[in-house]
């Protein structure tokens, strides 16, 4: 087999493998940025959840190990938890009075 054909095949193979990996990393970066922003917003409301913070840390750890699928999943989980924490803080701004002994 001519060398040029072999080289073309190798290049195609590399592209096929690298493209999804780059896409997974990009998806992680986007998910992590959103999760970080949500966590920071919950922090401003003084209502971060330990589970959101733990999921954010797990996302970073998985990304450092090259497991971007797991990292993205953890980042998305963290964002969902932080969004719930933000909802809770907003809802409790007035509703805490419902529990007061009168």
């Amino acid at each position: 087999m001519p060398r040029s054909i072999l080289a073309c095949a190798a290049a195609l193979l590399l592209t096929a493998v690298a493209a999804p990996a780059r896409a997974a990393e990009a998806a992680f970066k986007a998910a992590y940025a959103s999760a970080e922003a949500a966590n920071a917003e919950a922090g401003k409301l003084r209502n971060q959840w330990t589970t959101a913070v733990a999921a954010l840390a797990a996302a970073k750890k998985a990304a450092e190990a090259g497991d971007f699928d797991k990292a993205t999943s953890e980042a998305r989980k963290s964002e969902q938890l932080s969004r719930a924490a933000i909802f809770q803080a907003d809802e409790q701004k007035t509703n805490w009075k419902l529990m007061e002994i009168r």
Binding site: W49, L81, Q92, W96, M99
Partner: peptide
């Protein structure tokens, strides 16, 4: 307010 406010997961 702090005493009666729900927080955490």
């Amino acid at each position: 307010r702090y005493f009666y406010t729900r927080r955490g997961q």
